[in-house]
Amino acid sequence: MAQLNLLQAVNHALHTAMEADDSVMVMGEDVGHFGGVFRATSNLQKTFGKARCFNTPLVEQGIIGFANGLAAQGAKPIAEIQFADYIYPAFDQIVNETAKFRYRSGGQFTVGGLTIRTPYGGGIAGGHYHSQSPEAFFAHVPGIKVVIPRNPYQAKGLLLSSIRASDPVLFMEPKRLYRASVGEVPEMDYELPLGKADLVQNGSDITLVAWGAQVEILQEAAQKALSHGVSCEIIDLQSILPWDRETICQSVIKTGRCLINHEAPLTGGFASEIAAVVQSECFLHLEAPIARVCGLDTPYPLAHEKEYMPDALKTFEAIMQTVHF
């Protein structure tokens, strides 16, 4: 097995998908000859030609609108939005079109073949407009799936599943880990199931839930908690929608405590949804209030990035407070 970083694993998945299916096409700003600003689409144009991997004009609403049309026709477009912070001009196309295509036509028409890839998240000194984590906006929209990998193995398997899924998928890539996360990735074509969480670490005192780059923050916090005698179970949600309620709730029933961590602002973040379901499903098993360690309810700052982030120290503090409630 090859050692790849997360970016290379994404690139691998794109090559694999395009190789296996002629109707897969990659489009977006700078994805052609240049291979994308992060190089996720390197060599795709060279290998599969300009007709199947192409630069688009600089217009996100156009990219997703075009991709919706292409998918409705039966192709499998993989549309890249260069940064998740720039997805908003395409919000109408995603929310009102992508997500409702099948429902509004009684199943006659669908854009199920569409995958939208976008790098998200902070920790890279990117300020307001290169750091956002907008997953909760899209999780609020029935009709589109939201998937986030945390390592190269997941990135390849989940991206291949997303491309081949019968539903449109927003595939959000934690750019902080693009080169930082390195791991073994099988050469072969493989898929990982959507809608399933990944149990990262077994534990008995508290269930920690996160996704993407924040999973390693949980691991760091759990390590610190362990030195204080607290055993943490860590779950990577992987699929934000639909999400794996069963795995999370079973874990909380076992541990009696739950902490959710995400980079996005606290209010209206996806942790709120998880907390609501957990309290409803696990009420009699909870020994402490569900904790949320999240970004502040502010735009993502630059000079105060470190202070803004829901880091391992804040997570550790919340673990200890929850355990000693």
Partner: peptide, 24 residues
């Protein structure tokens, strides 16, 4: 702008120069 934005996102009310925003 209180250090909130990336370098080159200038803004100066006195000079009638609106604060830069990255989205194009």
């Amino acid at each position: 702008n209180k250090g909130r934005q990336m370098p080159i996102h200038y803004g100066d009310k006195e000079l009638n120069f609106m604060t830069v925003s990255s989205p194009l």
